[in-house]
Design a protein around this nucleic acid. Sequence first.
DNA 1: AGGCTGATCACCT
DNA 2: GGTGATCAGCCTC
Length: 207
Amino acid sequence: MPEAPRRLTEEELAVDPVDAARLLLGCVLESTTPTGTVGVKIVEVEAYRGGDDPASHCYRGRTARNDVMFGPAGRLYVYFVYGMHFCANVVSSTDGVPGAVLLRAGEVVTGLDLARSRRPGARGDGELAKGPARLTGVLGLDRVHNGVDLTDPDADVRLYAGDPVDEVFVGPRVGVAVAVDVPWRFWIDSPAVSTYRRGTRRTRGTA
DNA sequence: AGGCTGATCACCT
DNA sequence: GGTGATCAGCCTC
């Protein structure tokens, strides 16, 4: 058995999403479902803020959908994307202030067999959680996990502190069509880091 | 050339 | 405007 991992607290996550993003690098997100437990070491994240961030779900105020992002830090914000997948965020900022960190990629550190079975097509283990939808999928997270308190020891999903990271890389957020100049994507050296892609605006239907 | 992913789009309340 | 859903681009074979 490894050392007893330290759980992240609401307090340390109740900071600006940019700071929370750096804090989350190297941490481990662990998810337990009826099928088993999978843990992922976070290697790539993106910060999303509120009214001042055009790329944020909270840019236009509080709704039932983004409500969790306005709540206390340390909660899990899961959203449905492109009609097929889910993406997971760790809520940051103080209660009432919107902010979250999108988990973009990770390395599976627990439950490797289960993780592999959830991603039959993966060519290598480094690819299992490479990309936000893959990460969420390998952890077995979906809509029902929205709002889970990651600081609760009894929760199905928990967040643990990891080994200190040495070098943090910074760049613009992936797949975002607006605020491209804001360098709010952070990652550490890992084969699981996803490749950069600029956001695209779909062509309008009518000419 | 095909498969896979994904902070966008189009429609309904 | 909010919520539920899809097809254009990127990556690999």
